Measured scan of single mutants.
Amino acid sequence: ERVRARYDYEAQNEDELSFKKGDIITVLEKDDGWWKGRNGKEGLFPSNYVEELE
C-alpha cells in the first residue's frame, strides 16, 4: 500500500521517517497511530500525516 504525505514531518527519533508534503511512502506495517514505511529510508511515522492514494 502506498500513501501520500499531507504535511511535512521531521523525525524526532532515529527510528522515525522524515518526509515532505506530497512524498509517496510505501506502508510496511500499520499500528495504532504509528505506521512503518519506506521512502528510500525506513521508519515510523504518524498515520494522521498521510492519506491513502486513490
Rank of each mutant, 00 (worst) to 15 (best):
E1Q: 14
E1L: 15
E1R: 14
E1H: 15
R2V: 12
R2G: 06
R2H: 12
R2N: 10
R2E: 12
V3F: 07
V3T: 04
V3R: 06
V3E: 01
R4S: 05
R4G: 03
A5N: 02
A5C: 07
A5P: 05
A5D: 04
R6A: 11
R6F: 06
R6K: 15
R6D: 05
R6I: 15
Y7H: 12
Y7E: 12
Y7I: 11
D8W: 01
D8P: 08
D8G: 05
D8H: 04
D8A: 08
Y9C: 06
Y9A: 02
Y9S: 03
Y9V: 03
Y9P: 04
Y9N: 05
E10G: 04
E10Y: 13
E10T: 12
E10C: 14
E10N: 11
E10D: 13
A11M: 05
A11C: 05
A11L: 03
Q12E: 10
Q12G: 07
Q12F: 07
N13K: 12
N13D: 09
N13S: 14
N13W: 07
E14I: 11
E14F: 09
D15Q: 12
D15E: 14
E16H: 08
E16K: 00
L17E: 01
L17C: 03
L17A: 04
L17G: 01
L17M: 09
S18M: 03
S18C: 06
S18Q: 04
S18W: 01
S18T: 11
S18D: 08
S18V: 01
S18E: 04
F19L: 08
F19K: 01
F19I: 06
F19W: 00
K20Y: 06
K20M: 10
K20R: 13
K21L: 07
K21N: 05
K21C: 08
G22D: 08
D23N: 05
D23M: 07
I24H: 05
I24E: 06
I24N: 03
I25T: 02
I25A: 04
T26C: 11
T26L: 13
T26A: 08
V27C: 04
V27F: 01
V27S: 01
V27W: 00
V27H: 02
L28T: 12
E29A: 14
E29N: 12
E29P: 02
K30H: 06
K30C: 07
K30A: 06
K30P: 03
D31S: 15
D31T: 15
D31F: 15
D31E: 14
D31R: 15
D32Q: 10
D32I: 07
D32F: 06
D32Y: 06
G33Q: 12
G33R: 11
G33D: 14
G33E: 14
G33Y: 15
G33K: 12
W34I: 07
W34R: 08
W34Q: 07
W34M: 11
W34L: 06
W35V: 07
W35A: 05
K36V: 12
K36R: 15
K36C: 11
K36P: 05
K36H: 09
K36A: 05
K36F: 14
K36W: 11
G37C: 03
G37N: 02
R38H: 14
R38D: 14
R38S: 14
R38L: 12
R38K: 13
R38M: 12
R38N: 13
N39H: 13
N39S: 12
N39K: 11
N39I: 15
G40S: 09
G40H: 12
K41S: 12
K41I: 08
K41T: 12
K41R: 14
K41Q: 11
K41L: 10
K41F: 11
K41V: 10
E42C: 08
G43F: 00
G43W: 00
L44R: 13
L44Q: 08
L44C: 11
L44M: 14
F45T: 04
F45I: 06
F45C: 02
P46N: 09
P46H: 06
P46E: 04
P46D: 08
S47E: 09
S47F: 08
S47I: 08
S47H: 09
N48V: 10
N48T: 11
N48S: 15
Y49K: 07
Y49I: 08
Y49S: 08
Y49F: 13
V50F: 04
V50N: 02
V50Y: 00
V50M: 06
V50C: 05
V50H: 03
V50W: 03
V50E: 04
E51L: 01
E51G: 05
E52I: 12
E52N: 13
L53E: 08
L53Q: 07
L53P: 07
L53I: 15
L53R: 03
E54W: 11
E54T: 14
E54G: 13
